[in-house]
Write a protein that binds this DNA or RNA. Structure first.
Length: 497
DNA sequence: ATGTGC
């Protein structure tokens, strides 16, 4: 339990050779099943196209789907989305629901280190031609207004520990109260930007001190702020409802709960390791450390996790307002002319108590989505969407992002979930090796993408080849019917940590 | 992902 996050390449190899790849049985072109065996409480189900199977089998993620199927109280299936890859305990792209009334557990490994990592997209009144010759200046302006990079801080004034308590409890609304964005943004945010059950007393001192200075900061790695062009519309009715039209400029933000959520995860992994012994839980991998939802440990994690989720929503709300200032300053426009309007903000790393149909009855389940996005049809979402909940799928910095919409089928088949993005294919080290001697910035420039970045190795680590084909991932979910494609966005100006 | 390690 001490070795997480270190020497990941060697460790992944060890994991891979531990077991042979589980056998996949075809259900249909986009869905494969792993039969129950050994201590598995449920089968595994992987949404994937035939052409991606080889890659998935070589990565160790499938063994993790099997491991997750062992969790106490798991219901239905251990799911994986097509962007599945190896992660801490759970695969990234994993979805699992447990029933608290049946001893169901909650596991920090099923949420991930970056609690409520997520995406928001805002539309504008601008057209491609309005920004085409100003992209360099725009990205520079974004950089000036939004602190970026590992350990970045000081975006907005440092908040006191007491004020941080309020951020933890009210989430995005805190940012709105501070003048970052408007109240209407909240209706266009998952959970209205505030997950219930947050209890600041469950959050430790270290997490607090990291959180106090990191509100309104982007971070590093795959986090970004992007200027996009709406390149294609697939679903006219939803596009109209979402306010999307071809040629339009949009703003996209991908970030999470920064060091705050990271520290919360770290703290509770230790709590859970003790809980596993206390409750004598039998797990195939210690990284699946967990506790019953209805135990003190499980409840404390969920309360602290909600604090981190709310921090992340406040963070993205703040960053959107900082980005608006950057755009206004650079383009010399009024807010009215720019017309920046939040389309939606959705998270892809979280565990939530949700009501779902299990057989003929509705049960309250603890749904883990780790690198998976909620994708509800109009039914069940407390917001104004007629066509369904917007689903935001970011690509890597050289490829397009997708906007999709939730479907009835996802609610029936995957606890209302779909994929979250392209998913990493190459290790960070591997990508750096591959990029040696190349000028990635210039390569992107030739693709019509202006990029500025902070970290020395960021551009290599995040180069397009390090990621799977987001197009294939999104089409698989579309084909399986768990989310429907609405629009494709092409990046033209990218700011990376 | 992450003040990249106790």
């Amino acid at each position: 339990m001490k070795d997480h996050g270190r020497g990941s390449d060697a460790k992944m190899m060890a994991k891979r050779t531990e077991k042979t790849s589980p056998r996949l049985r075809k259900i249909h072109s986009y869905l494969w099943e792993i039969e129950r065996s050994g201590g598995m409480r449920v089968p595994g189900r992987i949404f994937i196209s035939e052409s991606m199977i080889d890659r998935v089998c070589s990565d160790g993620g499938l063994d993790q789907v099997v491991n997750v199927a062992h969790l106490p109280g798991i219901v239905g299936y251990s799911f994986a989305m097509p962007d599945i890859h190896w992660g801490y305990g759970f695969p990234i792209g994993g979805v699992a629901a447990t029933d608290p009334a049946q001893g169901g557990v909650v596991s920090p490994g099923g949420v991930g280190y970056d609690i409520n990592c997520g995406v928001r997209v805002a539309t504008t009144h601008l057209e491609r031609a309005d920004v085409e010759r100003k992209l360099e200046a725009l990205v520079t302006s974004l950089f000036r207004h939004i602190p970026t990079g590992l350990g970045s801080s000081g975006a907005i004034r440092k908040v006191s520990s007491k004020e941080l308590d309020r951020v933890m409890v009210i989430g995005a609304r805190w940012a709105v109260e501070q003048g970052y964005g408007s109240k209407g943004d909240l209706a266009h945010t998952e959970e209205e930007g505030c997950l219930g059950g947050a209890d600041p007393s469950a959050v430790g001192q270290r997490a607090r001190s990291r959180g106090c200075e990191q509100l309104g900061t982007l971070g590093s790695g795959n986090h970004f702020v992007e200027i996009d062009v709406v390149e294609e519309i697939y679903h006219k009715e939803a596009a109209r409802e979402f306010g999307l039209r071809p040629g339009q400029i949009a703003l996209q933000i991908h970030t999470g709960s920064r060091g705050f959520g990271h520290q919360v995860c770290d703290d509770y992994l230790k709590v859970m390791a003790r809980a596993v012994r206390k409750f004598n839980l039998q797990l195939p991998d210690r990284q699946l450390a967990c506790a019953p939802v209805e135990s003190a440990e499980g409840g404390a994690y969920l309360a602290a996790m909600a604090c981190a989720a709310n921090f992340a929503w406040a963070n993205r709300q703040t960053i959107m307002a900082l980005a608006e200032r950057a755009m206004l300053e650079c383009l010399g426009m009024t807010p009215r002319d720019l017309g920046l309007t939040l389309l939606y903000d959705v998270c892809h790393n979280i565990a939530k108590l949700e009501d779902h149909e299990v057989g003929r009855e509705v049960r309250r389940l603890c749904v883990h989505r780790k690198g998976a996005t909620r994708a509800y049809p109009p039914r069940g979402v407390k917001n104004p969407w007629r066509t369904g909940q917007p689903v935001l799928i970011p690509g890597d910095m050289g490829t397009e992002s997708y906007i999709c919409v939730g479907q009835e089928k996802s609610l029936r088949e995957t606890w209302g979930s779909t994929c979250h993005g392209a998913g990493r294919m190459m290790s960070r080290k591997g990508a750096i090796r591959k990029a040696r001697g190349r000028n990635i910035k210039q390569e992107l420039r030739r693709l019509g993408i202006t990029v500025r970045y902070e970290g020395r190795t960021t551009l290599a680590e995040e180069m397009p080849e390090a990621y799977k084909d987001v197009d294939e991932v999104v089409r698989t979910c579309h084909g399986a019917g768990i989310s429907k494609m609405v629009a494709r966005l092409k990046p033209v100006g990218v700011m990376k940590g």
